[in-house]
């Protein structure tokens, strides 16, 4: 029984320390990354991995009590709503015309191809207009 307790203790230590490391890494990424889209990536690391590991470690420390039930509820809720909120922010940024770095190059290429296709269509529609 004491060996089992020791194993649980070590497991919760590892989970909490790893979760703290993930949280700090996510915060450093949020502070230091140069672009909004890379910051989304850093925040989602802290939101999913760090949150799950910290909640797991706290659950093991709580034992079979009401505290663990509350922690599991918090974990499930954050696991659902964290990525949803991040996705909502990213989607709102994309819809408002906030492109990733370098994406306007591809967009310009698409526009040029579109214009060329339109010109070809126009020429095809009235081929004898200038000759008559």
């Amino acid at each position: 029984m004491s060996i089992l307790n020791l194993v649980f203790e070590i497991f919760s230590w590892v989970a909490i320390l790893l979760g703290s490391a993930f949280m700090v890494i996510g915060a450093i990424g949020t502070l230091r990354f140069p672009d909004f889209w890379s910051r989304v990536h850093a925040v989602s690391v802290a939101d999913s991995a760090g949150m799950l590991l910290l909640t797991l470690g706290m659950c093991i420390q709580g034992g079979f009590t009401l505290v663990t039930v509350k922690l599991i509820i918090i974990g499930i809720f954050l696991f659902i709503t964290g990525p949803t909120a991040t996705h909502a922010v990213a989607n709102a940024a994309l819809v408002s015309g906030f492109l990733p770095k370098g994406a306007d190059r591809f967009r310009r290429k698409i526009v040029i191809a579109d214009n060329a296709a339109k010109k070809a269509k126009k020429k095809k529609r009235s081929p004898l207009k200038g000759m008559l």
């Binding site: 949280m23 996510g26 915060a27 949020t30 909004f36 910051r39 989304v40 925040v43 802290a46 939101d47 760090g50 949150m51 910290l54 909640t55 706290m58 922690l71 918090i74 954050l78 964290g82 909120a85 991040t86 922010v89 990213a90 709102a92 940024a93 408002s96 906030f98």
Partner: peptide, 23 residues
Amino acid sequence: PTLYDRVLSLNAFGTYTVLFIGI
């Protein structure tokens, strides 16, 4: 620099606060 950075950080700050209260 933009509004969306601030909303994203606000959401992340809320998650950190929840875990901080638990800890």
